[in-house]
């Protein structure tokens, strides 16, 4: 019973980490540029032409979904996909988003309805008569409940940069925006390449040990095989929690022993003075990051959303890890 509780708390938490991270205003981070700005926009990927409907895809829930026609009324129940849909030029077709959506700016005013993305009311959802519902890290029950209501729903939960690219391309295909999706991905990849080249020059011993904390009470941190773990690596850092699998609470003893050189906090939007509070914790003054003042609050919108701005997140982290590279 206790373990089930724990597991559930962890599950809820992971979901929350993604969703609630978005309450902060999305002022940080560069706006997603239109694909026209992309270097070589769309040229490197051959245009496939219009998508033929009905289209059958396999999504991350493992199910085969048939999209009968080009979606005209789309509901996004996760902010990262909202960003993708808008970046694909689907403004006007997205009819509802979640209350955690803050990007693009004023996105909640551009839709007919704002829903609870975590526990969406299937009734409300059905009343919007969407022909496509886009889901993210929702649990199986939610996905099935929406499908049982006769709605066409796809679920993508990318956990790596490559998976983000694939998800964008998939959403592009489903919405008949194949070319724009290809251009967007190409633009992201180009930016990622520039960053990777910069970071590649950093020798291993100059890559800081990094501790990321997303919850101040339980010391939740991303372990191996998490999206954040990859962001840390791409930004030229070494995650101190890489011996853990997935999102896990970490013991303060282990953090102090690992002696991180950089500490990144993502909960600054709901905990005032988060850096100061961390620095005041007993015993944490033995940690290099605290000694040298390298404790940072980052915009959780940016680093928690596996969407089109993910490369911007890598850049933001890389600037914290290697300020000298960006002078």
């Amino acid at each position: 019973m206790v373990f089930r509780w724990w597991k559930r708390a962890v599950q809820c938490w992971s979901l929350l980490a993604v969703l609630f991270a978005l309450v902060a205003c999305g002022q940080g981070g560069a706006p997603a540029k239109s694909p026209a700005d992309a270097p070589g926009g769309g040229q490197s990927t051959p245009a496939k032409g219009p998508v033929a409907y009905p289209l059958t895809v396999r999504d991350d829930s493992g199910e085969t979904v048939t999209i009968p026609k080009e979606p005209a009324r789309i509901v996004s129940l996760i902010p990262s996909h909202t960003e993708t849909l808008f970046a694909l030029g689907l403004e006007g077709r997205v009819v509802a988003v979640t209350s955690y959506d803050h990007y693009p700016p004023d996105v909640q005013k551009k839709v007919e309805a704002v829903l609870d993305g975590l526990n969406p009311s299937v009734e409300k959802l059905a009343a919007l008569r969407p022909d496509l519902v886009v889901l993210g890290s929702h649990n199986r029950e939610t996905v099935q409940a929406i499908r049982r209501a006769g709605l066409t729903a796809v679920m993508y939960d990318p956990q790596s940069l490559d998976a983000v690219y694939r998800t964008i391309e998939q959403l592009g295909e489903i919405t008949n925006r194949t070319d724009r999706a290809a251009a967007l991905v190409e633009q992201m990849k180009a930016k990622a390449r520039v960053l990777a080249d910069k970071v590649a020059a950093v020798p291993p011993e100059r890559r800081p040990r990094v501790y990321v904390e997303v919850d101040p009470d339980q010391l939740f941190t991303p372990g191996r095989n998490t999206f954040m773990d990859e962001l840390i690596r791409l930004a030229g850092g070494v995650n101190i929690a890489s011996d853990l699998e997935g999102w896990k609470p970490i013991n303060a003893e282990k953090v102090i022993r690992s002696n991180p050189q950089v500490i990144v906090l993502t909960y600054g939007y709901y905990v005032p003075d988060a850096e100061a509070k961390l620095k005041q914790r007993r015993g944490w003054d033995a940690v290099d990051a605290v000694k040298t003042g390298r404790v940072y609050v980052v915009d959780s919108d940016l680093v928690n959303r596996p969407g089109p701005r993910v490369v911007d997140a890598v850049e933001a982290l890389a600037k914290l890890f290697h300020p000298d590279l960006f002078r």
């Binding site: 929350l16 339980q218 709901y270």
Partner: peptide
Amino acid sequence: SAERLPGVMMWLMGSLANRDP
């Protein structure tokens, strides 16, 4: 106050982990 949700466990089942001395 959903972002504090993990705290529910701590309060309902008790914990001394990460409490400020």
